[in-house]
Design a binder for these strands. Sequence first.
DNA 1: TTACATTTTTGTAATGATTACAAATTTATA
DNA 2: TATAAATTTGTAATCATTACAAAAATGTAA
Lengths: 137, 137
Amino acid sequence: MDKIKDILVNKGISPSYHRMKILEYLVKNNNHPTADSIYRVLAPQIPTLSKTTIYNTLKTFVSKGIISSFAGLNQELHYDYKFEPHVHFFCRKCQRIFDLAEPFDCFKDKSIEGHLVLSHQINLEGICHNCLQDEGE
Amino acid sequence: MDKIKDILVNKGISPSYHRMKILEYLVKNNNHPTADSIYRVLAPQIPTLSKTTIYNTLKTFVSKGIISSFAGLNQELHYDYKFEPHVHFFCRKCQRIFDLAEPFDCFKDKSIEGHLVLSHQINLEGICHNCLQDEGE
DNA sequence: TTACATTTTTGTAATGATTACAAATTTATA
DNA sequence: TATAAATTTGTAATCATTACAAAAATGTAA
């Protein structure tokens, strides 16, 4: 839990209880949660927690570079603590999101056709391993 | 205009007037429009046009593979008729979207770690050429 | 052409994620 | 302890998108 606090302090964010709990959730669960799914898990444990706090906190974390966000198949924002380079695979059947290794590294902080690239996202879409097996049955 | 009609008929979509005008707009304007921006342009020319028709039509086109869609910086859906492989660059300052050449081709219809990849999107974010120049001034 | 069925479009209301904002609470500071 | 600042809450607003039923347009058969 001190590790969580350190992350916040190092980024100049005061480590309030709610912020620590939300970041702790993100660090421990690499399941691409949405604001709503975080709320559903944490609200029972923290009865006073409001959804606005979730949104505020996530927005703060993204702006400070602690987490990243990306749009899912239905436009809902998902959040990600993971920072090793990876790509997201969206399964059209089960709607789950998988992390896959990034097979190259040719964008970050480069200049491409005169444009300065600060971040990049690679999104794959298709049928996941499990759903392919289910189709076969 | 016959070309527009052919595209629709070939995909099994009956070429109604509104559908043709919307597809014509997409074919002629490679400016990544949103449903709303299409509406703002076409509504004055077609006074009876409703926004729901825009949404319905775009959804039909996407499902038939005539156009593709992607989420912009603010989650709004943008539409694209272009089918040569390309990546999208989002400028954080001017919010414009640029098409850049795709520097490799290693996803489409491949199987990666057991998952079948049907489509992919590469999104870059940063400061565009023009905005970099403005900063220098 | 007319009558009927089907398709397309419209317009309004609903949905759902996100944000704005002011009040309430908590925390830090003097 | 008193006061200021930061954080959180809760409700209401926003905005893109969708649902849905009515209206309009189109196609078809007699």
